[in-house]
Design a protein around this nucleic acid. Structure first.
Lengths: 188, 188
DNA sequence: CAGATTGATTGCAGATTCTGAAATCACCGT
DNA sequence: ACGGTGATTTCAGAATCTGCAATCAATCTG
């Protein structure tokens, strides 16, 4: 639609990652990001709620997708299996963007502000899963606790996926983490 | 310690809670909080890293206390029991401040900014527990997963404690939540 | 007791984040 | 050609947060 070159969000994200990598998160201003992308500061805020959000593109859509996948999972599946299936369903997209994910992770690790936002996203993922599990008929407190631990297992799996020198798939590491979870839970 | 009236942090916290309750979080400025406490905006920032932090007094000390208690727990205790004991150890302090905790919770529930900070604190608690469990000899990934689920159970117990019309103790609700956790985990 | 020290508070300047409202711009259908 | 549409821009401004120097009163020191 528009005479403006498309991919505005993408250009802003790329500019942001470049600048954050060059000078660090705090030392780059939103105005600088926008300028590098050939846009203005105000346009940045038309696309992202705040400065941090530029590093979490599509997270809300991802969470919504997980919610729907869990809700729509076959009834006979156990809660954990339903969530694991939802996680692995679109995981090859991440496999195709492994390198970008690694760069992003370095940035998150280096700045407390960004880690705080990430933890909020993880918590939001957990709450979304909890809602979906309740919709499947799992009552509280099981829904809340199961959802929290699934979100934790997802974090664990993603961390191992990024750290794996063999470059195994995300789906593989997610399955392994859920297996570890079951093993660990038996000791509780 | 000084000619200035003591309890500066406490006065700022009370002023903040009052104003947040009256007009909401976004609609009160740091300058207003400081003025109501008889201080200046700059002094507020001498005591709190940012505007949100005024609603999380002593959280870092609390987390440090849990870390130490878990680390120092008797070796024969299971990880879950060690964490539960750490949680319940100082929980009567909260019982004595139940009403304040409820007011605080209402504020957190009403403002996404504040919930984000809370989730970050919960995550920090989880990471502290994970470190303590590793120090006790529990290897990863069990340490990470156990710590996450303990933090989740703590949240659950605290929520029930605040919602309980019978006003049962926090320790009681924490034990109940850990019991629910074990029960739920058996179904995984 | 005068003087130095200390620690908390203050004043001020300024960069930066984020918002609201109105204006601009070019594509698109009619 | 003309108006609608959606994205971008411009502008003004409030609020957050930081750095630095100054102030102030209590306490320590000789």
């Amino acid at each position: 639609m528009g005479r403006w070159p498309g991919g505005t969000q993408e250009r802003l994200q790329e500019a942001a990652i470049e600048l954050f990598t060059e000078r660090g998160y705090e030392r780059t201003t939103v105005a600088e990001i926008a300028t590098r992308a050939g846009l203005t500061e105000r346009t940045f805020y038309n696309h992202f709620a705040d400065k941090r959000e530029v590093l979490f593109p599509g997270q809300d859509a991802f969470i919504a997708g997980i919610r729907e996948a869990v809700t729509a999972a076959p009834e006979e599946k156990s809660p954990l299996d339903a969530v694991l299936a939802a996680f692995t369903a679109g995981s090859d997209w991440f496999d195709r963007h492994r390198e970008a994910a690694q760069r992003r992770r370095q940035l998150l690790d280096a700045h407390a502000d960004l880690r705080e936002r990430e933890r909020a996203k993880v918590a939001a993922l957990g709450e979304a899963i909890a809602g979906a599990l309740r919709a499947r008929g799992l009552p509280d407190p099981a829904a809340t606790l199961t959802a929290s631990v699934c979100a934790a297992a997802h974090q664990l799996g993603a961390a191992r996926w990024l750290a794996d020198p063999e470059e195994g798939t995300l789906a593989h590491h997610l399955r392994a983490s859920f297996e570890d979870l079951r093993r660990t839970a038996r000791t509780w």
